[in-house]
Amino acid sequence: MKQTIMTRFGEVEFDPQNIVRFVEGLIGFENLHDFIVMPNRKNGPLFWIQSVEDPDIAFVLTDPTNFFLDYKVVPDGRERDKLGIGKDDECHALAVVTVPPDRKVTLNLMAPLLFAPATNRAIQVVLENSPYKTREPLPV
C-alpha cells in the first residue's frame, strides 16, 4: 500500500516497505527514524533521503567512493548488532553532503552513514580517529 507525505519539496509517494530505518536517528536528529530514499531526477552520484516524520528534513547523500576511492568503513560487532546483520552481510558507507551557500560542496567523511540492505537499517557512526573531516571538499 503506497503512502503519501507532504514534504518541503512537494508531495512524495512511497512504499512503506522501502523505508530505511535509522535505529538511533542521525546525530542531532535522534527522534527521526524513518526515511525514504529519493532518486535524483538527473543521473549522477547524488541522491537524497527524506524524513517520513518531519517534512522539513532531508539529506543529500552520495557513495563517497565516487570521490575518495580508498574510503572504507567496516562496522564493528556493536554496529552490526544495531544494523541487525552478521559479519558477512553487505554494508555500505554513505556520506552526507553539505551544500553551503557558496555551493562548494563538502562530504561529511567523519560521520558516515552505514546502510545494511538486508535489513533496510542504517546508523550514523563517528570515526573519531580518522584523518577525515566533517567538511571534506570534493577532490579537484
Binding site: L26, G28, V96, V97, A111, V126, T134
Partner: peptide
C-alpha cells in the same frame, strides 16, 4: 556533527 547534520 550535530551542526554539520543541521546544515546538511
Amino acid at each position: 556533527i550535530c551542526l554539520e547534520n543541521r546544515e546538511a
